[in-house]
Computed example of a mutant assay.
Amino acid sequence: MRVIFRCDPMLAEHLPRPIPARGALPDWLRAMPATAYSAIHGRDIRTLKQCPPVVDAMTYGFMVLLPCDVTVDKGTFSWDWEIPDPVTGNHPRAPLSFHTPGQLAGSPFAHPGQAALKFNSFWTIEVEDGWSLFATHPVNREDLPFRLVTGLVDCDRFSDGGINFPAVWKDSEFCGVLAKGTPVAQCFAVPRAAPRLEFEVFDEKRQAAYAQTVADVLSAPGVYRKRFRARRGRASE
């Protein structure tokens, strides 16, 4: 799968490039202990840090990054970002804009009088024919003070315009800086063809395989990681 990013020539030296998601793991994941005491079990047990599906989801695809520092003061957003004028018509200069509150009406994201953020992307994104781009909140990043609204864009066709990523700001009392390079969207290509769903019951062979697999997983730590987890290649430019 090739993913092609393009930007205005005047901004190429001023924009952080999207990066493989494995390069944007949060500090809390690195700092958290591998094991913690469980009063229920009466012993130390493994934490999320040792759960391959959790970590693999966080490292999947690529991250779109905030292009500059954004200062936030209880719902007021400002930035000081000196960039050249883009030579491309209808091109944004601001790192974010807004959706009016009415655009959220009737959804779980709606809060009285609160607009939605719109993270502007300065990169166009092209994927291969028959694929779409799935854009969602950075996986398991509940520490971020916003929540991205998930979307699906047919970037094999829509590849000449930038994608805007809508989000809801979660912490109305937040005062601080959303730093340049903060991941704002986690993206990956997905096939557009719908899957065919099939349903079966276990035959004797599947029953035995189920029982043995569960017994193996419960017998020792790391069984999934050692026997079932697929090796993942690193993204290349």
Score class of each variant (00 low, 15 high):
D154M: 14
A24C: 10
M10E: 14
D143N: 13
P52E: 04
P166R: 00
V139W: 09
F199K: 10
A57P: 04
W79Y: 08
H14A: 13
S78A: 12
G106L: 05
E200I: 11
F165Q: 00
W123M: 03
H137C: 08
I163D: 00
D154E: 15
G151C: 09
T88W: 09
R93M: 05
P95W: 01
A135D: 03
W79I: 01
P67C: 01
D73I: 02
K170D: 12
G233V: 07
R225L: 04
A209P: 00
L15K: 07
T76A: 14
K118N: 15
H111T: 12
W123R: 02
R232E: 13
H41P: 08
F188H: 15
F5R: 08
F158C: 10
P166T: 00
F199N: 10
A189R: 08
A220D: 12
M58V: 03
T88E: 15
V87H: 05
N90L: 11
R22V: 13
L104Q: 08
E142I: 07
K118C: 15
T136R: 15
A194C: 10
A185S: 13
V214Q: 07
A208V: 09
K74M: 08
A179L: 07
W79F: 10
L218F: 04
V127P: 00
P53V: 04
F174W: 02
C68N: 06
R232P: 01
R22I: 12
A215P: 00
V55C: 08
D8V: 05
C51N: 15
A211S: 03
D160S: 13
T71D: 14
F5Y: 14
W131G: 04
E200D: 12
G113V: 02
V177S: 04
G75L: 02
G130V: 05
R206C: 09
T71G: 12
R157G: 11
P86N: 05
G42H: 03
G23A: 11
R2T: 15
M58I: 02
H41Y: 14
A211E: 11
R225C: 01
H99E: 10
S121P: 06
R196H: 14
A115W: 09
A57R: 14
T59K: 13
V3C: 09
L152N: 11
T213E: 11
G102Y: 05
T213W: 13
G113N: 06
V3I: 13
I83A: 00
H91E: 15
K170F: 07
N140L: 10
W28T: 00
F134C: 12
H99V: 12
D73C: 08
R157I: 14
L218N: 13
H14M: 10
M63K: 09
F146P: 01
R206L: 13
F62E: 03
P183T: 03
E237V: 09
